[in-house]
Amino acid sequence: MLSIIQEPGLTYWLLLSTVLFSIGLYGFFTRTNAIGILISVELMLNAAAISFVSFNNFAVTGDLDGQIMTMFIIAVAAAEVVIGMAIFIQIFSKQRHLNVTKMNELSR
């Protein structure tokens, strides 16, 4: 166990990524603002990207698939945020709040 920390190899980076992911998960369940949830999702995506890059570095040395995957993750995260924000703005203009616990019906 200690060797994982003393010599940070693949396992250490993966554990770090998992910790960040679970923190993001906690944030997802805890926040009531829609934007807050989106921020937690970004955190989770970021943790996943870290794991890809660490795999690329330690398990598949020389090839660059992991880094390319990370670039794609970043691109998709950007796209997602764009659309999410657009939708949130529209919802806000109708409801004047962004509390997800109050948005549990399709129509009013």
């Binding site: 770090l16 910790v19 960040l20 923190i23 993001g24 906690y26 944030g27 805890t30 926040r31 921020i39 937690s40 955190l43």
Partner: peptide, 9 residues
């Protein structure tokens, strides 16, 4: 990073 993440949530 972990501390900042905790702050985030």
């Amino acid at each position: 990073s972990v501390l900042s993440a905790v702050l985030v949530v």
